[in-house]
Design a protein around this nucleic acid. Sequence first.
DNA 1: GTGAAAGCGCTAACAG
DNA 2: CTGTTAGCGCTTTCAC
Lengths: 335, 335
Amino acid sequence: MTKDKRVTSYDVAREAGVSQSAVSRVFRPGLSVSKKTREKVMTTANKMGYRPNAIARMLITKQSGMVAVIVSSRANVNYPEVLSQVSKQLAARNKRVLLFTLDNAEGGDELFEQIWTFQVDGVIALAAHFDHNSLDKFKEHKIPVVLYNRNVPDALANTVCCNHELGIKQLVNELKLNQPKNYLVISGPEDSDVATERREIALKQLEKHGEQQVSVLYGDYSYQSGRDCLAQWLKSNPAPDAIICSNDIMAVGVIDEAREHHNIDVPNDMSVVGFDGVSSSSWFNYQITTIKQPLEQLTKAAVDMLLEHIENPDSPPETRVITGTLIEGNSVKRP
Amino acid sequence: MTKDKRVTSYDVAREAGVSQSAVSRVFRPGLSVSKKTREKVMTTANKMGYRPNAIARMLITKQSGMVAVIVSSRANVNYPEVLSQVSKQLAARNKRVLLFTLDNAEGGDELFEQIWTFQVDGVIALAAHFDHNSLDKFKEHKIPVVLYNRNVPDALANTVCCNHELGIKQLVNELKLNQPKNYLVISGPEDSDVATERREIALKQLEKHGEQQVSVLYGDYSYQSGRDCLAQWLKSNPAPDAIICSNDIMAVGVIDEAREHHNIDVPNDMSVVGFDGVSSSSWFNYQITTIKQPLEQLTKAAVDMLLEHIENPDSPPETRVITGTLIEGNSVKRP
DNA sequence: GTGAAAGCGCTAACAG
DNA sequence: CTGTTAGCGCTTTCAC
């Protein structure tokens, strides 16, 4: 019963008294096989426990059916959920996720070689930093790449991202309600493209509103860094009227630090906004005013776009921007 | 420059004036090749941008170098982090993660077929429910499987798990400090093995202590379900003295619900404990007394175990239990 | 140490 | 509709 070797299409063919290619045909969807042959093959295949070998198929079709997904080790907090969404979306399109973690330490070169080796059909990058160099390599080798939530200036890459511009504009409008004088921007790490974008937009918006007193500090997206930034700031400055954080988790840290160690009331003494709309942002103690990223639509767009470019490798780069929704929480002072 | 075809070992061989097998040898670590040949091959390979085709290698060696990792769609909150840890650990051992999401809807049979097809070297299951049937199939086909945080009664599977027994004993001891009279256990979903284990251990411990007034409610590990369970309970019952939650996130929900809608002070009116030690459990407003799972050690153990069983397919099933650490927060009343 | 040759298990023309 | 045939790109004996 339990053969040590895996059963191959030849074994099935022999047993069923047909040719090997007949077996192959039965297992390729949409190929014409007579009902009789199909049944004969299917029953013996099932009896023998035969399943086609995907590796062999990949080798001959030059289509691995695998998509490399790159996640940064220091990933933004909601990437995990993004990952499982992407995986499900791809599975529905009959593709699998081959996971790669980008340790910021080692270069993207090594990563590229790895991925290239596996003949993946495409790449989705959720990583913090994915440099131009690697991007060019993939392009050169005609491997479609979709960047998730990353705006590449020259727009020579496929990108799906949340509408940061609009979102942050809305957040700033919320903050303006009570006409704050001093602003603090707590940005994500300097080497994160998303962080850079969110920070720069925030600064631009504030400037447009004629705000003069704006400072910037850098965290690393973590709760603790939110706390640390505020604590450090307060060592030599008064509490700002409004804080714009590059993500919700740092906003939570800021709020906790304010309340625990500095006796600052949020939102009455200080307004705080975040970004992402992660679940904890709406917990009773925080209720952060933030922009909720439409995860499902973002991931769906990313997968759709990737598949289109796999089908049609020469279609030009594309950017899809999806609008998030403003969550009016209770972390911003109202007039 | 940009050839449309991928360059193969034959191309390199021709260019370098050696045989194809020489090229192959150069790219297999630990094979004897003369220094001269090696250099010649390496330089032309680099010049031509050659990298061995992993798919072809898989086909001939019958080792895909891929490990299937199964995650449940309704995954416990800290699985994401587990996933990236596992991925990194495996990468260090030169294996890649092929991701599968188990939608509780479709059966494990379909999933098995999928995985089998890809000739993976092994499987790590982080899924909520992975039935005996599938387990047997993998065993029958000699694919090593490691279950993460799941105790299978008959111990016929490889398992790595946190020491739930000890952890919950410690939590109950903490609760006992103030001699509560009424206990409420808020369990994870009924079809989750981890939830079942944690719940049953809790009930056993309470019984051992002679506690009479113990009730059980079922959530789904989510924040909202924690809130809902408490709200529902309070409709027809007084607040319990102590609540044991199957994970931290539900404990957070319980605490928020108590404070927001029922004017119950935690810990003074009601003690709450969680499990997992996720980062938000230590946030200022919660500081939940919980058991912190040693994630890194757990994942390392899982990967080690899997690789041992890949090397030695006939070694008997094994269970590795790793002790978590009690975090004494501020959610339990002290005498 | 090196090259020739035989596949791994499958798909995809191509005749029949 | 079916069988024959020729590979996909690599690893691995086996002579030399």
